[in-house]
Nucleic acid binder design. Structure first.
Lengths: 107, 107
DNA sequence: TCTTTGTTTCGTAAAATTACGAAATGGATG
DNA sequence: CATCCATTTCGTAATTTTACGAAACAAAGA
């Protein structure tokens, strides 16, 4: 970890605004919305990458990149279960997003 | 997930998924979140492009492009009031977005 | 050990996004 | 009519996103 450093750089956006933008970017592609829908609708089942690619018009490697984006945004996590990887929603981040979007639109 | 067959063309995403992705894309940039915040917090006042550029580290033309994006997404509208343009939230679209994101995260 | 299997990473290419300053626009005013 | 003013559009450039197939990877099994 780097030495902490007080930033004297002017900030133009609030934390909420930046977190909103980051989460929205994660949701800004229909493949990723599909993935989240799929995982949220199958909380009880195993959700492998292979289960999803069947119904999508994209290559496996492309799906993998979208999964990586969603992981980067913190919205999903992958539990390794060889040779599969079982994906699921990260409930904490999901709740954070719910709260953020909720308070943003509640006006 | 449903795969719909509409007018001979296979569709891979539901309407909700595509609308979510489009709205999220409009929200995927902090400048645009800032603009929406600004407009939503100043519903009673006139909101000119010039009012916003003051506090943002971007050129007027860039702000204009972001406004165009938000207009394209239907989230805002501009009322011409020469030589100014008064911007405001499009409440119908706002409510639609609220409902979409609300039902998406409500689980 | 050599495959097999599901998945990710890499190399690459096309398209979209973001940004700027200059120039154009469309009313209003002198 | 010429000018002013806030704003948009244009031309352009840098960066990011999306996508693919090939290659790499990691664990299990023959």
């Amino acid at each position: 970890m780097d030495v902490m450093e007080v930033s004297n750089k002017k900030r133009y956006y609030t934390d909420s605004q930046e977190r909103m933008a980051k989460l929205a970017k994660a949701l800004s592609n229909p493949v990723r919305v599909y993935i989240l829908d799929f995982l949220a609708n199958n909380l009880d089942r195993c959700c492998y990458s292979g289960d999803m690619v069947e119904d999508l018009p994209i290559a496996r490697s492309t799906l993998s990149e979208h999964l990586k984006e969603l992981k980067k945004a913190g919205l999903i996590q992958g539990e390794i279960n060889p040779p599969y990887i079982k994906y699921c929603i990260n409930q904490d981040k999901w709740d954070e997003a719910k709260a953020l979007f909720g308070s943003f639109f509640k006006r």
